[in-house]
Structure formats: structure tokens, C-alpha cells
Amino acid sequence: MQRKERQLVVFTLGKEEYGVDILQVQEIKRLTEITRVPNAPPFVEGVINLRGNIIPVIDLHKRFGLGAFEPGPESRIVIVTVRDITLGIMVDSVSEVLTLEEAAIAPPPPLVAGIEASFLEGIGRLDDRLLILLNMDRILGLEEVAAAQEFQNKAAEAGAGR
């Protein structure tokens, strides 16, 4: 029988450990200079230069209401691609890549570490460790972005049909 497993990139925010699916992770970068974007959503820290491409960077501390991000020597930017959109998330450290059986993932309780349940995909258990699995789609509001995109396309079509 085939066992279903998932590979996760594990990182920390504050005291908690989090995981994102390794298939969504492009690379892990040291902190670089981030250019602030005025009038962007508050959790958008700014944009960086990733080999000639402009990539937005998200502050998950702010998104989760965990206070301000404090850059330290272990701080990293994890570059993820979700729904064809590439962006960076700032984390306090990246610890490891590990494999978790699907069976070890439980649905999220209503509130974990002060984070809204809708941002979470589940809680993973590995020995005595608890991993918080993130639902990047929700966190980034990409459903809304996709919807907005569709709306814009329709509007453009309507405009062209004049």
C-alpha cells in the first residue's frame, strides 16, 4: 500500500514552527534590501529584486497580527509560487525540510497561536513537535486577486465590445 506523504519546508515565526509544501517553495534567500511600496496593503513589506524580477515580499507577523518583524541573523525570505504568482515571505528562521505522513495531519482547531483558522490547512504532529501548516492561498488573499483579475478581464472585454 502506498503511503501518502508530504514534504514540508519548516520555518519559525516567533516561537511557533510552521510548514509550507515544498512544491510551492522556489528558494530561500537571505534578507536583502526591501523597497517599501506606499499605499500597498499593510502586510506587504515591499518589493525585492530577484534576478531582475520584481517580487513582492509579505510580512507574516503583520498578516497574523503577531507584532512587528524583527530582522535577525537567522532571518530569511522564503520565495514561494502560488497560483503562478511568485512572492517572498519573511520568516525568523528556516530550520529544515521534513516528511510528514498525511495521517499525521489533523484539521486546524479554531484558533492556533492567535492565528485565524482559515489561514491554516492543518496541524501536523511529528513525535512531540507541532507544525502549523499554512494555507498560502488564503493568507495571500489570492482567491481575491484571482477574482479581481477575472473581473478586470471581463471589464476589459466589455470595454472592447463598445
Binding site: E33, N39, A40, N49, I85, L140, Q149
Partner: peptide, 23 residues
């Protein structure tokens, strides 16, 4: 372009990369 995620930010037309790599 600032990309799809940020979309239209009021007052910002895009971004550029300077010679030193800064955005």
C-alpha cells in the same frame, strides 16, 4: 511591472532596478 499580486497601486506606475541592484 509590480506584478499581478500587487496589481494597481495608486500613484505607482511600476518599478525599475538600478545599476546597484536596488529596486
Amino acid at each position: 511591472s509590480l506584478g499581478r499580486f500587487l496589481g494597481n497601486v495608486p500613484g505607482i506606475g511600476g518599478a525599475t532596478i538600478l545599476g546597484d541592484g536596488r529596486v
